[in-house]
Nucleic acid binder design. Structure first.
Lengths: 173, 173
DNA sequence: CAAGATTGATCTGTCAATCTTC
DNA sequence: GAAGATTGACAGATCAATCTTG
């Protein structure tokens, strides 16, 4: 019985508010809907990108982040942050992209600890080819699903959730 | 340059609206924030559950869905839908849960095509032990991060996004 | 043969070392 | 020694193929 209030004992007066730490029926329903949306959206966008461009969602975003830099270059750790991936995950991922010729890596000449990930011409072309269909999907499934003001609300809420996660991450329980 | 407007040619008058099919700067920012939130939230909840209960997010929800049935039983395909997992993924997953003694499977006596997944006592105990900390995290990171009315907005928006995904899934492009 | 479910091959992500450079 | 990055072993997800039952 997770996520739902413990059954009140028969003789007990039902409480007007959920027990502390649990979710009210409304909260539970909202969370489940939200959670379902996240799972489905990830799946749909990833599959669409995979079918239309042989790229995963993260791979696409790695290329996209690189393309927005004037020199098409980013340090691995910066790229990891921008793509919301662990450094380890990104390292494996970039290695695969490198094998496909979409990205290359070279050590930072100024500081040998850093590795630069650099978008290749082919990587750029792949991204440019993939982008329109992907962006259209995002618009169709998300942007156009809600009003502009709702979208702002979403973003504001998302921002606050991110803040809480970042606080939560560096915390001793 | 995906997700951003193509550079206007120097002599061109900048358009007041984004090119059709592309995202405005605000839309792009909102989408990125939203996308980042999804990635981080998944990671955080999954990691937390893993550390506190040796369960992944999907595993937890499989147990949770079963626990809400009076007979603690669900057909594999129903469970797959409720947990937003493919049938294949669920099959692998339930096999692992079965090896750990948290779930057992038996064919539906009425219709041999169906398989029943059934929560064991141990599975139930595991869930009950895991739930409080997990629910508290969900409350901390999501529910309490937004106002009740914002939460309703979120859920409503999520609902509409889900609808669009479901429409999109069964469509010929 | 269609629906429900499982399997196996393969690919990707995670975690815990490890390596390198400052 | 600490930060940035990589590696290898293992756990988990995906896809296509397969099996089974009605």
């Amino acid at each position: 019985m997770p996520h739902s209030r413990p059954e009140p004992v028969s003789t007990e007066v039902p409480e007007p508010l959920p027990a502390p730490g649990w979710l009210s029926p409304d909260e539970l329903a909202a969370w489940r809907t939200f959670s379902r949306m996240m799972a489905k959206l990830q799946w749909e966008l990833d599959g669409h990108l995979q079918r239309t461009a042989c790229l995963s969602f993260v791979e696409y975003h790695a290329l996209a982040m690189l393309s927005e830099r004037p020199d098409h270059t980013l340090r691995m750790s910066e790229l990891a942050d921008l793509t919301n991936a662990s450094l380890s995950r990104l390292s494996h991922l970039v290695k695969r992209l490198e094998l496909r010729g979409l990205v290359r890596r070279e050590p930072d000449p100024d500081n040998g600890r850093f590795t630069h990930a650099i978008l290749t011409e082919q990587g750029h072309a792949t991204l440019v080819a993939a982008a329109p269909a992907h962006v259209a999907k995002v618009r169709e499934l998300v942007i156009d699903a809600v009003s502009p003001s709702q979208l702002r609300q979403f973003a504001a809420g998302a921002e606050r959730i991110i803040d809480r996660i970042d606080r939560s991450a560096g915390r001793c329980p």
